[in-house]
Design a protein around this nucleic acid. Structure first.
Length: 644
RNA sequence: GGGCACGUAGCUCAGUCCGGAUAGAGCGUCGGACUUCUAAUCCGACGGUCGUGGGUUCAAAUCCCAUCGUGCCCGCCA
């Protein structure tokens, strides 16, 4: 992908560009020194600026070359450094040295300082973003709550993580469509309709529809598991067992029937479903508004069922001979054990589309259980569809309507296996030109154990937000810096920062034990810590009449502390690059924390307004820092505050 | 039985995907810094067999194999 820098005719002398230049230079120097060695990005490390000896960039490649060539590493390093010196170091690199076999490059700090500050202030909110010649069109499943249930902390993590990751992908130049892929279709709603028509209560529904529906859902599930227990555990008589079985089947069958009716557009079923859906969406929207997140589309699973997309993929699967028929009306795609391998990546995907293997296996034994493949069902024997059908339909739709390059799914890692199967099935269907990516994340549990909507052990998104707000308001009041009428607004922003930071600070794969008391703490490794640092920046800028232009300052006035902060700012685009690679926001969260720490340190050590030497320089540096705080926090969906 | 993830300081976690020079933060503990641009802060100290055992390598927290522990998944549910 080709880089186009915004607003500059030539690539600025920035960390990012310098590293690119050094790779090229190092490649030539290595060849000129007489060594045959393949050099890539990993051969140049960006070092900690506080380490004088290592320089800003360092390469350990002399060790590998030395091992092959049987020469001492220091000699190899020296001869490469000499060659590089002779060829001429890139603009912005002052010297190259050899320390302990490492080739260390020392940047021209003044040039880097003024370039970095100029670029940040010139690009403003665009700093760190890029445009790419051929951006990807990305369709993303985000948030995806099930209707008729409240949003809980799991949805909170999903929604906040999705928002941040999609923001990053946009900043990296891609065209992202956020699809709130509502769970609004499936037998569970048949079960709910059964329960509602049997036991529902209109006045309860009206006073709190979601609570009432949740009660009914839990009642259905609890009765089912209770009956299951009774059935399995020592029934007193056969007669008793039979009646338990009957009771259980009655409810389950009735639920399935309701769903079948819904899929057949039965008026009563559709009416009920629409009512459930509307009250759910109304409630969701309140919470999304509180979270300050938006979606581009709310397709929901029902869309693909009701608009005929399910039929499209079912037909396609049968016509292309990738799916076979099972009992009743059942249709499934056989998946062989060797089908899984880099299956989300269009370039690496290689699956066996043939049904011959499955047919052979079934000839030996009619029992699917014995066959060495997993059936990926897209039609059940009763003729209704499954989530897999809807997900295949979604891919078909995204290709047809959006010409999508990527279809990505922010969904908890408990569904990892399912997504592998879905992606295999999709390849078999012939969806070859689309990158499929499961952006999985760890489960959230409570200190008292794992959450279960069924058992009623949940903590809702609303509870978390309310508690964070209450706690933030107490602290804002205690500090007494905000005007009476602003307290709630300030507290809200701090509360959001707390919750959002918490939700993205751990890398995706990690499970989180969600301790609400710890999460609303405002000290240390938290969102408010970062907000506070930014606020101090504004406070400084507030005390200055004007901030000079970046090209009007003398970078040689910067001391070590200033330079450390400056390098932190320069690193920002590299952090976003890493976030894009990983489809994660955690590196950004950690970066902002580090930036806040360095800025706080700068704040204590260096005077700005009263500085004897570097007042102008530090004003520019401070302004650039607040800009990076704004840009980075914005990607995490966190607002900065002038005062807190 | 099979699959995936996680295991780093007392606790919560970065760093692992791309192997490099003394393994980093926060919380907690101990000590220090507010007549100062916001102390929601800063500075310092204490704290580590990077789960364990092999292997590859000049070099392993990082790669490979094995093993233990924890969580999740393996349904014509989502």
């Amino acid at each position: 992908m080709e880089l186009i820098f915004l607003g500059n005719k030539r690539p600025p002398i920035m960390l990012y560009q310098l590293r690119q230049d050094l790779i090229t230079g190092l490649r030539d120097a290595t060849a000129d020194a007489g060594y045959d060695y393949e050099i890539d990005i990993s051969d140049i490390e960006v070092e900690d600026v506080t380490d004088e000896e290592k320089g800003e960039f360092s390469s350990p490649l002399s060790f590998s070359i030395a091992a092959d060539a049987g020469e001492p590493p220091v000699a190899v390093a020296e001869s490469i450094a000499d060659a590089h010196r002779a060829n001429g170091l890139p603009d912005g690199i002052e010297t190259v040295s050899v320390e302990g076999g490492h080739i260390n490059y020392h940047a021209d700090r003044s040039a880097l300082a003024s370039e970095t500050l100029s670029v940040i202030l010139e690009e403003g909110t665009e700093y760190g973003t890029r445009t790419v010649a051929e951006s990807d069109t990305i369709l993303a499943d985000v948030s995806s709550p099930n209707i008729a249930k409240p949003l809980h902390v799991g949805h909170l993590r999903n929604t906040i993580l999705s928002d941040a990751v999609m923001n990053v992908l946009e900043a990296r130049g891609h065209d992202v469509t956020r699809d709130n892929h509502l769970g609004d279709w499936g037998v569970q709603f048949g079960n709910l309709m059964h329960e509602y028509t049997e036991f529902g209560n209109e006045s309860d529904f009206e006073s709190d529809p979601i609570e009432h529906l949740l009660d009914l859902y839990q009642q259905f599930e609890q009765r089912d598991s209770m009956l299951e227990d009774l059935e399995e555990n020592e029934p007193v008589t056969d007669r008793f067992r039979e009646s338990v079985e009957e009771e259980r089947e009655y409810h389950a069958e009735s639920g399935k029937e309701w769903f079948a009716r819904l899929e057949q557009d039965d008026e009563q079923a559709v009416d009920l479903w629409e009512t459930f859906r509307e009250v759910s969406i109304d409630r969701f929207e309140e919470t999304y508004a509180d979270l300050d997140v938006d979606f581009d589309i709310w397709m929901g699973e029902s869309f693909y069922a009701r608009e005929g997309w399910n039929d499209v993929v079912i037909e396609k699967a049968l016509e292309n001979d990738v799916a076979m028929r099972g009992d009743g009306e059942a249709v499934y795609i056989p998946i062989y054990p060797d089908d899984y391998e880099n299956v989300g990546d269009p370039n690496a995907a290689d699956v066996d589309r043939s049904l011959d293997r499955a047919r052979e296996m079934l000839e030996e034994s009619d029992d699917l259980e014995d066959a060495d493949f997993e059936p990926f069902y897209i039609v059940k024997s009763d003729g209704s569809t499954l989530y897999g059908t809807r997900d295949l339909a979604t891919i078909e739709y995204r290709l047809q309507e959006y010409d999508a390059d990527q279809s990505v799914y922010v969904v908890a890692n408990e569904q990892e296996r399912y997504f592998q199967q879905l992606f295999v099935a999709a390849r078999k269907m012939g969806y070859d030109d689309i990158k499929l990516k499961h952006i999985d994340y760890g489960l959230i549990s409570l200190p008292e154990g794992s959450m279960s909507t069924r058992k009623g052990q949940i903590i809702t998104a609303r509870e978390v937000l309310d508690r964070a707000r209450d706690r933030a308001r107490d602290i804002v009041e205690e500090k007494g810096r905000s005007a009476e009428d602003e307290i709630q607004a300030v507290a809200n922003k701090i509360a959001l920062a707390t919750v959002k930071y918490e939700m993205v600070a751990s890398k995706r794969a990690r499970d989180i034990t969600f301790d609400i008391d710890e999460s609303v703490s405002l000290e240390g490794d938290t969102g408010p810590y970062v907000q506070y640092a930014a606020t101090r920046g504004y406070s400084i800028l507030d005390g200055a009449d004007a901030v000079p232009a970046a090209d009007q300052i003398d970078p040689s006035n910067f001391n070590e502390t200033d330079v450390e902060l400056l390098y932190e700012l320069a690193r920002y685009p590299i952090v976003l690059e890493r976030c894009e690679e990983r489809y994660d926001a955690a590196p950004l969260a950690h970066y902002l924390l580090e930036l806040a720490h360095v800025f706080n340190s700068f704040y204590h050590k260096n005077q700005v307004l009263e500085a004897e030497r570097a007042r102008d320089e530090r004003l520019v540096l401070t302004e650039a820092t607040t800009q990076v705080f704004e840009n980075g926090l914005d990607l995490l969906g966190i607002d900065v505050l002038e005062q807190m």
